[in-house]
Design a protein around this nucleic acid. Structure first.
Length: 495
RNA sequence: GGCCCCUUCGUCUAGCGGUCUAGGACACCGGCCUCUCACGCCGGCGACACGGGUUCGAGUCCCGUAGGGGUCACCA
């Protein structure tokens, strides 16, 4: 078999959204699995809607995800001459014809078809019936025309085998004589796409199921152009909870790849989540390293049914599909701390609370890594380190209202106790988890309180949070000095 | 409306005629752990859209119905 060559051809009319990213991921996985090539081709034929900003956004998104390509980006617009030449050839070989029908005429016919409720909106082939003389006359009159492809009028149809959907057959009679060149002389997507795929020697077209109905027409073009059609694999679409196709327009940022970077996702976690939308390895595995995923992936195991991106708009607890969050959290606590550290650093820098001592060769590097490891198991995104975990890194931090209410206000004695505890802890030597624990427990006993009372009060004052890691480790991480200082400030929190 | 595709727990899915009283993951609920929460572990809730066939036997094959999706541009 020849080298596998696949392509990801986004049209640069917005940011990279998760549906597009998923298509790119499947193509990338397939290319990597077969030691093939992934070609990035920007389909910018629609000049009015294409923007440089969008192109950069797409490339930026792919790069962030770790999807690397082997060729390109190529730009469809640079091959306009080639597309036109192909159209000329089709005309010359009798595979296409000029159609002088105006938009208004066509629209009127479609309107009539709608009114007649026949469901037949196909072009009626008026111009296919024109005699050479009539065509010459219209041309001489300078009438504008589009070029239409001559779909065979014989019985039968186009059949092909889709790797995902199986054998597909479409009767010639159901395919209308489609337009391949606009009246302004510019070829349309259907033709451009085929011409580009032939030139780029694409062997497998892996795309969304919305491209399935285009396939028979494209196969007709391949044949007319004398080229062998590639293998097709259509993947199911991603829908929202109302079963609508997800789109930038109606869903906004939650479907933008960029958004996931902003809310603190690990790129690989997103990839891992997206690949599971419509594909499964056939066993129970759901978490994959890059190598494992490439090894496990296959087009044959792509599902045929559309999947739902389970995002409940307006639910503050779930900023995206809960499974995506879970997968991200999994990587956050399972990945090597050394790999996580630079990502946390970025977040702390953004929050303006980064200290150079925590850096690669900083003198508090070990402490920094230890703290990350201590707090990461209850975080879902990288953002959490700078928000929920802020108290470990900076003295300025919010104290949760819930925590004040539950852990402080309910036990007014703590207003006196906490400063007392500060003195006790200040005297602990050496400052070890064991000694801290003994001190705390003895203190509770003396006061006739349950250990949880001073402990949770202390947690609130020291970390600002209702919940967190084991308190003795927390105190050790925050350090004697800061813990004592925060306890001394505690009375101010009581009204 | 025409054509095409799809249909297993709320969501993602396993299942390729008998091993299915349908398995896993997320979410949810309960328990253990415990200073709290999370992690982890244990347990619970929860699905084969419906109706006909075929077969000794159907979630798995066929047909129909219903529902959902895609597409019907001089967009890509």
């Amino acid at each position: 078999m020849n080298e596998v060559r696949v392509r990801f051809p986004p049209s640069p009319t917005g940011y990279l959204h998760i549906g597009g990213a998923r298509t790119a991921i499947y193509n990338w996985l397939f290319a990597r699995k077969h030691n093939g090539k992934l070609i990035l081709r920007i389909e910018d034929t629609d000049a009015e809607r294409s923007t440089q900003e969008s192109i950069e956004g797409i490339i930026d998104g792919l790069t962030w995800l770790g999807i690397d390509w082997d060729e390109g980006p190529y730009f469809q617009s640079e091959h306009a001459a080639e597309h036109q030449a192909a159209a000329e050839r089709l005309l010359a070989t009798g595979h296409a014809y000029k159609c002088f029908c105006t938009k208004e005429e066509l629209e009127a016919k479609r309107e009539a078809a709608r009114a007649a409720k026949t469901g037949d909106y196909r072009y009626d082939k008026t111009c296919r019936r024109l005699s050479p003389e009539e065509v010459a006359a219209k041309e001489a009159a300078g009438l504008p025309y589009v070029v239409r492809f001559k779909v065979p009028e014989e019985a039968g149809g186009v059949r092909f085998h889709d790797v995902v959907y199986g054998d597909i057959e479409r009767a010639y009679d159901d395919i209308e004589d489609f337009v391949i060149v606009r009246s302004n002389g510019r070829p349309l997507y259907l033709l451009c796409n085929v011409v580009d795929d032939i030139r780029d020697r694409i062997t497998h077209i892996i795309r969304g199921q919305d491209g399935l109905v285009n396939t028979p027409r494209q196969i007709l073009l391949y044949r007319a152009l004398g080229a062998e059609p590639p293998v097709f694999a259509h993947m199911p679409l991603t829908l929202d909870t109302k079963k609508r196709k997800i789109s930038k327009r109606t869903h906004g940022e939650v479907v933008a790849v960029q958004y996931y970077r902003e809310i603190g996702f690990l790129p690989w976690a997103l990839v891992n989540f997206l690949v599971l939308l419509g594909w499964s390895p056939g066993d129970d595995r759901e978490i994959f390293s890059r190598e494992e995923l490439i090894e496990a992936f296959s087009l044959e195991r792509i599902n045929r049914a559309n999947s739902v991106f389970n995002y409940q708009k307006g639910d503050p607890k779930f900023i995206t599909d809960p499974k995506a969050l879970t997968i991200n959290a999994h990587y956050l606590r399972a990945m090597p701390v050394a790999e996580l550290a630079p990502l946390v650093e970025k977040e702390l820098r953004k929050a303006g609370i980064w200290k150079e001592d925590w850096g690669e060769n900083g003198k508090e590097r070990a402490w920094f890594l230890r703290v990350i490891d201590l707090i990461r198991s209850r975080f879902h995104t990288l953002k959490d380190f700078a928000t929920l975990g802020r108290a470990y890194f900076d003295d300025e931090f919010e104290i949760e209202a819930k925590a004040i209410k539950k852990n402080l206000a309910k036990h007014p004695q703590l207003k006196e106790w906490l400063p007392e505890l500060a003195d006790r802890l200040a005297a602990v030597e050496p400052f070890t988890a064991e000694n801290i624990e003994n001190t705390l427990r003895r203190f509770a006993e003396e006061k006739g309180a349950k250990p949880g009372v001073p402990i949770n009060g202390l947690r609130t004052v020291v970390t600002g949070r209702l919940a967190g890691p084991g308190i003795f480790d927390v105190i050790l991480a925050v350090g004697k000095e800061r813990t004592v200082a925060r306890l001394r400030r505690a009375p101010a929190l009581f009204v």
